[in-house]
């Protein structure tokens, strides 16, 4: 039991590391790889939680995560990047060291915020909760600091990863039906985004979201 908790802790640390990695990574392909790694760590940790708590349905969630977030979505994103030829460096709105510091502040903030929950909870995985929340917030931060539409999608997906992680760590997972639904939603969202990007790209010749400011009337 102790060793399993340690493994989960270690995986949580890796999830956090990949979240930060995505936050500061400039290159698109590396970013997608990091996202895939995060999915992998998430999937393993779900399986370990399932093993530890004896919750069978978590194995299915784990497999679902593996197939969707480690294989399918990164593949789609890769295809997108290759088709649109956007593997060059990504500009960030805020400079990288400052983004890192904000990220660190978010981790501390989530630790502070989840303190009451941690005191109430008796689960072995309760210490992971702040990291899950931090992953959500860092995903959001990533969407704010990046200019590129594809990175914003990755940020969105990373947020979803965080939510999923929070669910497994706080309550040993949501009911399977809900999880399947969410997974389907994410998948469809990714497809729709993909289609949108093609259209945005053809009409603006760029995926820089600042271009969309031109859609505003009156300019």
């Amino acid at each position: 039991m102790q060793i399993a908790a340690q493994i989960i802790g270690f995986l949580a640390a890796l999830v956090l590391l990949t979240a930060f990695g995505m936050l500061v990574q400039r290159r698109m392909t590396a970013l997608i790889h990091l996202f895939a790694w995060q999915g992998l760590f998430l999937s393993i940790s779900t399986a370990v939680v399932g093993f530890m708590a004896g919750q069978r349905h978590l194995y299915i969630s784990s497999l679902l995560t593996l197939s969707l977030k480690v294989i399918l979505l990164p593949y789609i994103l890769h295809v997108l990047v290759r088709r649109l030829r956007i593997h060059r460096e990504i500009e960030t709105v805020v400079n990288v060291p400052l983004t890192m510091l904000i990220g660190v502040a978010l981790v501390i903030f989530s630790y502070h915020l989840t303190a009451p929950v941690r005191e109430l909870s008796t689960l072995v995985t309760r210490s992971v909760l702040p990291i899950a929340l931090a992953t959500v917030l860092i995903g959001l931060l990533m969407m704010i600091t990046r200019r590129h539409a594809v990175t914003q999608i990755i940020g969105f997906l990373a947020m979803e990863n965080g939510l999923f992680f929070a669910a497994t760590s706080a309550t040993y997972g949501m009911p399977l039906v809900v999880e399947l639904g969410v997974a389907l939603d994410v998948l469809i969202a990714a497809f729709i985004f993909g289609i949108f990007f093609f259209h945005i790209h053809t009409s603006f010749d760029s995926l820089n979201v600042e271009q969309m400011a031109r859609l505003k009337e009156g300019d």
Binding site: G9, F10, A12, A13, L16, L17, F20, V24, V96, P97, M100, G103, V104, V107, I108, Y111, S127, V128, P130, I131
Partner: peptide
């Protein structure tokens, strides 16, 4: 190099945080 060494700082800070959060 600010980014390179910033990453080093980030990693070390994450280490400190994960000690308090996870261990």
């Amino acid at each position: 190099l600010t980014e390179f060494l910033g990453s080093a700082f980030l990693l070390a800070t994450l280490g400190m945080l994960s000690y308090f959060i996870l261990e």
